[in-house]
């Protein structure tokens, strides 16, 4: 077992007083890729949002740590600076801020150091190419007028440039066509190539996982992890759905 990166224990989360996560446990080791699968409404995105500290997600019980630091004590930007990243299911459009200056500001705020304009421009161009976006997207307003697929690609671009310790991908593959899934998957693979890169991939579609190294798969049903296993669980879900896991634990 590698060193523990993320540990969530007995995590209970409510949204508008409705209990969604009902005592969830998960441990991710440094350098590992975990997958969470589960039916709609099981609480997958709630887990992602609660870990990132989204407003409106109230942790009522349990703990969550990243490198033994208490995530629940931190505000959203502190969690990001501690090494957490969330690829949003619905990335937000922010008019008037270019993708490039937004990312440069993010890097500067994370490190407290100036990022040189020209060096960064070169870097972002290269990564735009990796994720299949035209170089002109650097100058465009953040996510404004991007198609669904382009938004997801831009999330992966951010992942590759910000190099977090743990990236949570919340249904990054949803709504994408086959080619886009392949491009996004290639980007994730590139992130995995970084030493110690760790991932928590939330999906209900196996296609994105085809070319990725997966260490563990968790089945999340009704606010709890009901089964944890190896990559073989992916094909089990693909073939038989979630019904067979319901009522387990």
């Amino acid at each position: 077992m590698p060193e523990i990166l993320l540990n969530a224990s007995n995590l209970k989360v409510s949204v508008e007083d409705k209990s969604i996560l009902k005592g969830l446990d998960i441990t991710i080791g440094r350098g590992e890729t975990h997958v969470i699968m589960g039916p709609n409404g099981a609480g997958k995105s709630t887990l992602a949002a609660a870990l990132m500290g989204a407003p409106g997600y109230e942790v009522t019980e349990g703990s969550a740590t990243l490198e033994s630091k208490d995530l629940l004590e931190m505000n959203v930007s502190e969690r990001a600076r501690a090494g957490l990243f969330l690829s949003f299911q619905n990335p937000v459009e922010v008019p008037g801020i270019s993708l490039e200056s937004f990312l440069r500001t993010s890097l500067e705020q994370r490190t407290g150091e100036k990022v040189k304009l020209w060096d960064f421009r070169k870097k972002i161009r290269a990564v735009l190419e990796t994720v299949g976006l035209d170089a002109s997207y650097a100058e465009r307003d953040l996510n404004v007028g991007f198609s669904g697929g382009e938004k997801k690609k831009a999330e992966i671009l951010q992942l590759l440039l910000l190099k977090p310790k743990l990236a949570i991908l919340d249904e990054t593959d949803s709504g994408l066509d086959v080619d886009a899934v392949r491009t996004v998957s290639k980007g994730i693979e590139e992130f995995q190539n970084n030493e110690d890169a760790s991932l928590l991939i939330i999906t209900h579609n196996a296609a994105i996982l085809d070319s990725l190294k997966v260490d563990k798969v968790h089945i999340l049903i009704d606010g709890r992890i009901v089964k944890t296993g190896g990559p073989e669980l992916i094909s089990e879900v693909s073939e038989q759905g979630f019904v067979k896991f319901e009522g387990e634990e």
Binding site: A54, N75, S77, R79, A80, R81, F85, L103, S106, R110
Partner: peptide, 9 residues
């Protein structure tokens, strides 16, 4: 929230 999630205060 979105901007903060990238480490911006």
């Amino acid at each position: 929230y979105y901007l903060m999630s990238r480490g911006i205060s």
